[in-house]
């Protein structure tokens, strides 16, 4: 533990320390219950200071703006959740073929003319691919948030336990050098586990395999990251609940 910061606590509480000095106090407080307790006493006075300010009505629109901004963090509504019946005797083709086949599904979802055209070109592959998707699996659609509106991705979770889950993305935005999209699985306790990193390949549709099974997680999300490992640090690109909330 660093030296006690008793001497700086009043200045810290009113925000009169310079940034570097304040950081040092913050760091010490994290590991020192004695100084925290002392700060809490000082804070009872400092917290009362706003009371002497002249009351002022904020514009009515501010509340709506705040709520709208907060709503962005909520899981995107589940657009589709389909269960197919298991049909034995077929093997899973490569994921690359899947992307094209799944186009048709997406076209129905997104009602996009361009994608419908592409899907028609690949119709031959479609029938075969549908099988792969159908092993009692489930899908969830993640819609792009904020500046990523228009992008999206469907998570396919095969019903077969040892099969790989994958996400088929559409209309992803190109990335800056050094940036990657990270696919995350989030459990009920809020732990984020990185399931994949990828960059855009320039195609309107792109599929990405996940390295972890999805069945123990409650949400799937995509963020923009500057590193292929480590904790989630970047903005949320899209998200969907993939299991009913556990209470």
């Amino acid at each position: 533990m660093t030296e006690h910061v008793t001497d700086e606590l009043e200045l810290y509480a009113v925000g009169a320390l310079r940034p570097g000095e304040a950081d040092r106090v913050t760091a010490h407080l994290a590991s020192c219950p004695a100084c925290r307790e002392q700060l809490a006493e000082i804070a009872t006075v400092v917290d009362a200071l706003p009371d002497m300010v002249a009351m002022r009505e904020p514009p009515a629109a501010l509340k709506q703006r705040i709520l709208a901004a907060a709503a962005v963090d909520l899981p995107a509504p589940v657009k589709r959740e389909t269960t197919w019946s298991f049909r034995p005797g077929r093997s899973w083709p490569a994921v690359g073929g899947l992307a094209a086949a799944v186009l048709l599904l997406l076209a129905v979802d997104l009602n996009s003319l361009r994608e419908l055209k592409l899907a028609n070109q690949e119709r031959a592959e479609y029938a075969g691919t549908l099988d792969k998707v159908s092993r009692g699996g489930k899908t969830w659609y993640m819609a792009g948030l904020d500046q990523w509106r228009g992008s999206g991705g469907t998570l396919f979770a095969p019903g077969k336990p040892d099969s790989t889950a994958f996400v088929v993305f559409h209309d992803l935005q190109k990335l800056q050098t050094g940036a990657v999209y990270a696919v995350w699985l989030v459990d009920a306790d809020g732990h984020w586990v990185r399931g994949a990193n990828f960059r855009t390949d320039g195609q309107p549709v792109q599929s990405v395999e996940l390295t972890v099974p999805v069945d123990t997680f409650s949400q799937c999300a995509v963020t923009l990251e500057m590193s292929t490992e480590g904790k989630r640090a970047g903005p949320l690109v899209m998200q969907s609940r993939i299991a009913p909330p556990t209470q």
């Binding site: 706003p50 009371d51 300010v53 002249a54 009351m55 002022r56 009505e57 904020p58 514009p59 501010l62 509340k63 703006r65 705040i66 901004a69 907060a70």
Partner: peptide, 28 residues
Amino acid sequence: YGRLAYALAYRILGESEGAEDVVQDAFI
């Protein structure tokens, strides 16, 4: 607390636009 938060931000910044931004940031 929105009203108090806004009043405090306005008192420090002296203008409404900055105060609104600060309050929105703080609540988010």
